[in-house]
Each structure stands twice: as structure tokens, then as C-alpha cells.
């Protein structure tokens, strides 16, 4: 029995060894390196020099960083409602479809797997001053929409592109939530004379809370990671309004040759992102029991 136990121990250790090695290399080592970088000054060559909290103090006085944090809040204000509403509409429409359901789902998911660079070029052509959208608007109303030239509109336009990319994916999460609601609940409500609107507000939406929270959390972390669209289309402009934390991090590390400060920007981004997720869950998450 004892020898079997030793064998089992070896077997168990063998199984978790792979995971532990993987974690040590791809998580542990970068984490230790991140901590070292955050408290030091290092420029790719030589050994890091310990600087204490200097990098953290610098971020508090960095006007560019503060501007970008405000931009991120701006992106969140647009993107979360846009993504939630469009995904919900997509899911409800899908649940009412009888034919071509797979085709529609696949069509929307194509956007999710498309190359960021390719669709950024496509959208910059579509939204150009002399592009097809503006031509239609001009011929109908006699003016054009400065999609990427106006500082406020540029943020909205980027959010529009991100929404297009994720509506299929997030819509599927909400669709799965919709499918999990027992139809008997709707039937009972109808028998009691409830209107469709009443059913939506008092049954569908509350029971969709887990799916909606999942999408909100995903959309929040997604917003903190926006990179390709502004990098390709607006270059962070106009007036720095579409500059994102990831672009700033990348440029600081690899173009300004300041990986130590970029690390602190990354830590600040992670802290903000996680804190916001915790706040969202605390405020909006509800315990939902279907049985």
C-alpha cells in the first residue's frame, strides 16, 4: 500500500510538474522581472539600478498618463453601453430566428477573428471624408461627418469599430444566458397577462444578470487593452483623445527605450482594470437561481 502511495505521489508530481514549470517560466519569471523593473531604472542594456518609488511618483505627475486615463474613461463610457445594447439586441434577434441561425452567427463571428490591421484600413476608407458613408450623408444632408477628425467623434468611431468586432462574440454569451431561462417562466407570465415589455424588464433582464455581468467585465478589460484601431487609424489623435494605455506602454518601452516606466504604466493599468471589475461586480452582480 505504501509503495502504491509513493507511486501515486510520483505520478501526481509528474502531472503537476508540467503546469508548475510552465507557470514558473511564463508567469513567475516575468512577475519577478516586473517587480524588479518597477523599482529600478533599466534601458535594455546592463543591470537595473534601484530607484525606489521614483517610477511610481513619476506616473502621478505625468500629464500624458492622466490624459490617457481620462481617454480610457471616455472609451468606457461609450463602449460598455454600445456593446451591452448591441449584444443584447443580437442575442434576442438570434433567439427569435428560425432559419439560417448558424450562418448569421458565423457571419458575426468572422469580425471577431479578422485581422485588426486589415479592418482598420477598411474602416478608415469607409469613414474617409470622400468615402462611401460620407458621400451618402453629403448627398442627403449636404454635410459630412468628421469621423476621425473631431476629437469626441473619433472616440465614438473607434468604439463603433470595436463594437462591430465583438458584437457576435458577446452576443453569443447573452444568447446562451437567454437559452438557459426556462420557457415555463415566460408562459406563466403570459398567462397572468403580463405584456412583452413587462416580461423583458421583470424576467428576461434580471435572469440575464450573470451573462450581462460577464459581458460588462469582458468589455471593461477589453477597453483597457485597445491598441490596433487607434494605432492604425488615428495615431492617438486628434488632440491625443484616442491615445490608449497600451499604445503609451508600447511606445514607452520600445520607442522611448524606457521599459521600467512602461512597467509601472502596465501595473497602474492592471490595478485600474481589476479595481473597476471588482466595483462593477459589487454593484451590479446578483445571485440568480433558476430552479
Amino acid at each position: 500500500m505504501a509503495s502504491l502511495s509513493a507511486k501515486e505521489k510520483r505520478f501526481g508530481t509528474g502531472i503537476i510538474a508540467f503546469y508548475l514549470t510552465h507557470t514558473a517560466i511564463f508567469w513567475g519569471y516575468p512577475f519577478v522581472w516586473m517587480v524588479m523593473l518597477a523599482f529600478s531604472r533599466w534601458r535594455f542594456v546592463g543591470r537595473p539600478t534601484f530607484v525606489g518609488l521614483a517610477n511610481f511618483l513619476r506616473i502621478l505627475q505625468d500629464s500624458n498618463f492622466i490624459r490617457i486615463v481620462l481617454n480610457t474613461l471616455n472609451f468606457l463610457a461609450y463602449l460598455i453601453p454600445m456593446l451591452l445594447i448591441s449584444s443584447l439586441i443580437f442575442a434576442i434577434a438570434l433567439s427569435r430566428m428560425r432559419y439560417f441561425k448558424t450562418f448569421v452567427v458565423m457571419s458575426f463571428l468572422v469580425a471577431n477573428v479578422s485581422s485588426g490591421v486589415a479592418y482598420s484600413i477598411m474602416f478608415s476608407n469607409l469613414f474617409a471624408v470622400n468615402g462611401p458613408l460620407n458621400r451618402i450623408v453629403y448627398s442627403l444632408f449636404g454635410f459630412t461627418i468628421p469621423w476621425f477628425s473631431d476629437p469626441r467623434l473619433a472616440v465614438f468611431s473607434i468604439c463603433l469599430i470595436v463594437t462591430w468586432k465583438f458584437v457576435g462574440y458577446y452576443g453569443m454569451i447573452i444568447y446562451a444566458g437567454l437559452q438557459a431561462i426556462p420557457s415555463s417562466l415566460f408562459e406563466a407570465a403570459k398567462m397572468d397577462g403580463a405584456s412583452n415589455w413587462k416580461i423583458f424588464w421583470t424576467i428576461t433582464l434580471p435572469l440575464l444578470n450573470p451573462s450581462l455581468i460577464t459581458v460588462t467585465v469582458f468589455a471593461t478589460t477589453l477597453t483597457f487593452g485597445i491598441f490596433t484601431e487607434p494605432y492604425m487609424i488615428t495615431g492617438g489623435g486628434p488632440m491625443m483623445r484616442t491615445m490608449t494605455l497600451l499604445i503609451y506602454m508600447y511606445d514607452t518601452a520600445f520607442r522611448r527605450i524606457d521599459p521600467s516606466y512602461a512597467t509601472v504604466v502596465a501595473i497602474a493599468t492592471a490595478v485600474m482594470s481589476f479595481s473597476l471589475v471588482i466595483v462593477i461586480r459589487r454593484i451590479f452582480e446578483r445571485e440568480v437561481a433558476l430552479v
Binding site: I121, S124, N125, F127, A128, V129, N130, G131, W147, F148, S149
Partner: peptide, 14 residues
Amino acid sequence: TAVELGSNPFYMGS
């Protein structure tokens, strides 16, 4: 002048 004129405006005659 304008900024956003799509891809290859020179070759398109824009």
C-alpha cells in the same frame, strides 16, 4: 486640404 481621404487618393485622382 483634408486629412482622411481613404487609401491611395493620389492614384484615384482625389
